[in-house]
Design a protein around this nucleic acid. Structure first.
Lengths: 203, 203
DNA sequence: TTGCTTGTTGAACAATCGTACAACAACGGG
DNA sequence: CCCGTTGTTGTACGATTGTTCAACAAGCAA
């Protein structure tokens, strides 16, 4: 009697497997913090073997960097979605872009864990520092474009983009780090007020 | 012939030894990042043995927490110094308090490393989360007092303190994380402009 | 079916981790 | 001078780390 035993494992499309490892890494990061994100913990979370991490990413640091990159893209998509849902008015679009950082899925402790793990690599590794610079520049460029649509002149656009980014980052960080200190609504109102002071003065 | 060999080690005052371990921890954190802050690396940096860390702090996490606490106090002292040097005018004192974060010794990659290492513990450990909440509340209370001196009414004081803290934290973070993206002077100007919009509207 | 490609596994490895603890020695009080 | 206190040392220990790699098997082509 020939018995077709269930396969010991499934072969996956490279991209699919990569994604499952990345998502597992994000979950472990959120659950155990940066210190607990070991190869074995991530592999177990993904239902794969330890060797696969090395096979697809070469090392743990690279996997963390890839996880940051992936989550950063997801954040960017969430921001795009918020802007698209805001309608055509430039002011509304700018406000939607900014305040989306204080609501799910962006304001999330799980995201913070990934960010912190990534930041802890920026100081030591040069290539990761460059990756951070690039993604930060990308975010600011999007913000500058939205500011431009609201009539903020080129001369002050860069400066205001830096300011808004800092304010949002600071609020988001504290919101994730110690929720209960202030509410997402308060953060949103603060950001709104700041945007109003910018766009009203450039008209 | 009785030879008085040079002592193999010196006994130190408990506080002195604690401090030397804390400062060594900060240096290692700055040099190797959060991942490289092992008991052995810290002990070697302090010129002490591995056992002393356990003797004085009980564990590495507690040492990192103590390091954060110590550096946080040093930052508070630096802020006090900046305020004291600013003179009597409330506006000047507030501005000095805020803009001091963008200059040495506060704007420093070494400080950032300590902060990140500490943040990475906040998610996982409850007692460290409470320590963070307390120190954040302390900072904000100082800021609220300075805002009050500038005539900001009680009703909006809390909200503005949260906003200023977030802006400063965001600027400080990015300044340390990728220096060269914008200058300390730009950060200072941005913070100044924000403070002006707060204090001028409450008069 | 047969054979090849290659995604996948998991054991093995050296290195490093944090903690515990018995032995040692510096220092002050007798 | 000696003796007790205690700060200090460093080894030993088991657990865990990241990485490597030979063996295996899933899936596809012929």
């Amino acid at each position: 009697m020939s018995e077709a035993a269930s396969p010991a494992f499934r072969r996956a499309e490279p991209d699919v497997r990569r994604l499952s490892l990345i998502e597992a890494c994000a979950r472990v990061l959120a659950r155990n913090g940066a210190a607990g994100a070991s190869v074995r913990a991530i592999a177990q979370e993904a239902g794969a073997s330890v060797g696969l991490v090395g096979h697809y990413f070469g090392g743990v640091d690279a996997l963390v960097a890839a996880t940051y990159d992936h989550i950063d893209r997801r954040v960017a998509e969430a921001l795009d979605l918020a802007v698209a849902a805001a309608g055509p008015a430039p002011q509304d679009r700018l406000e939607a872009f900014v305040t989306a950082s204080f609501a799910p899925p962006i304001a999330d402790t799980a995201l913070l864990a990934t960010w912190i793990a990534f930041w802890s690599l920026v100081t030591a590794r040069k290539d990761i520092a460059r990756q951070h610079d690039e993604q930060y520049a990308l975010y600011r460029a999007r913000l500058e474009a939205l500011l431009g649509d609201c009539g903020v002149p080129v001369s002050t656009r860069r400066r205001h983009a830096i300011a808004v980014t800092a304010l949002v980052d600071g609020l988001w960080l504290e919101l994730c780090l110690s929720p209960g200190c202030f509410t997402p609504e308060e953060a949103r109102d603060i950001a709104r007020g700041f945007l109003a002071s910018i766009t009203s003065s450039s008209r």
